[in-house]
């Protein structure tokens, strides 16, 4: 228990360090990329541009901008005002979009894990059969077909030909199912393949053969002795999977007109909305860090040989 506790404390320290490093890196990067947030088709006179810059504290020397903004974040949790979405602070943008992205991501992940692990186990147990081939074929399709193609096909299929779901929008359960399925599909496919590979790996180990030799029922062996070990690569993949679900939702948010934060992410970058982009980057950093920590803890739980460090 103290293990876990001290692990968490250390992890927190690392997280702060990471966030700081990411902040610094992004700050430098954003300001060295050509273009600025006030580029527009009508050129702004320099004096007025200075007024605008002053509003966002962009007229200060870079080092002061760096510390001012950092102090604002640390002391007040204030990510500033969005430069491009003028009526909003970055915190408000996140507060509006995050629940949408999060619930989409949760549904997609749950769907992906359930389906992926099941498919992976089944196809490993019935290795070499037609069922295995079909499942793995479907899994590859899931990986091979880009998100946006899959979503477009799914709309044609499940909105028009078999009218099950509404075309787009957000606000009801029916509206969220189709995007969640499309978002989860590639992840499910990855998980299925990783599970299968892991299962085959473990099935060949001595202790599993011993377990079979002892005459334990197949189900017990697979669930108790094989699956925990086989899930290691899957668990390891969950961190990146979260990341890919969150960022990958960009395309689906567009196709299904969902009010999540994925689309802000690209816009902030291309429109040079420094504050919004920074807010997004830091949010993602914290989120992924937490997810990766959870993954590491799960690791230690599933595999007793791994110690938390």
């Amino acid at each position: 228990m103290t293990d876990l506790f001290s692990y968490l404390i250390r992890r927190l320290g690392w997280m702060l360090l990471t966030v700081w490093a990411v902040y610094t890196f992004s700050f430098i990067l954003m300001r060295s990329v050509p273009g600025n947030p006030f580029s527009s088709e009508r050129n702004v006179p320099p004096a007025i541009e200075r007024q605008l810059r002053a509003r966002f504290n962009l007229d200060a020397p870079p080092l002061q901008q760096y510390t001012d903004y950092l102090v604002g974040i640390v002391t007040r949790g204030d990510l500033g005002v969005s430069i491009k979405l003028e009526d909003y602070t970055v915190n408000e943008v996140l507060a509006e979009g995050f629940p949408v992205s999060a619930s989409l991501a949760i549904l997609a992940l749950v769907f992906a894990i359930t389906l992926g692990v099941t498919a992976g186990v089944v196809s490993a147990v019935y290795r070499g059969t037609a069922g295995d081939l079909a499942l793995m074929g479907t899994a590859v399709l899931g990986i091979a077909i880009p998100n946006f193609v899959l979503a477009s096909l799914a709309i044609l299929l499940f909105v028009f030909w078999i009218p099950l779901f509404p075309a787009a929008g957000w606000g009801t359960l029916r509206q969220v199912i189709l995007p969640a399925l499309c978002l989860g599909a590639p992840v499910a496919a990855y998980i299925a393949r990783l599970t299968r590979a892991g299962m085959l790996e473990v099935l060949g180990r001595e202790h599993v053969r011993t377990a079979f030799a002892k005459g334990l029922p197949k189900r017990t062996v697979i669930l108790k002795h094989v699956l925990p070990g086989a899930l290691l690569p899957v668990v390891s993949y969950l961190g990146p999977a979260t990341a890919s679900v969150l960022t990958g939702s960009l395309v689906l948010e567009k196709i299904f007109a969902l009010p999540g934060i994925g689309s802000h992410f690209i816009y902030a970058a291309t429109q040079r909305d420094y504050t919004l982009a920074m807010g997004m980057v830091l949010t993602y950093t914290v989120l992924l860090f937490v997810m990766n920590s959870l993954v590491d803890i799960s690791y230690a739980v599933i595999d007793p040989r791994v110690k938390l460090q």
């Binding site: 690392w14 890196f25 970058a269 982009a277 997004m280 980057v281 993602y284 950093t285 992924l288 990766n292």
Partner: peptide, 18 residues
Amino acid sequence: MRIVDMLYSIPFIFVVIF
């Protein structure tokens, strides 16, 4: 691994544009 975590959390769209 922390370095990897850090890199994970950087939006690569920025890196690539840059």
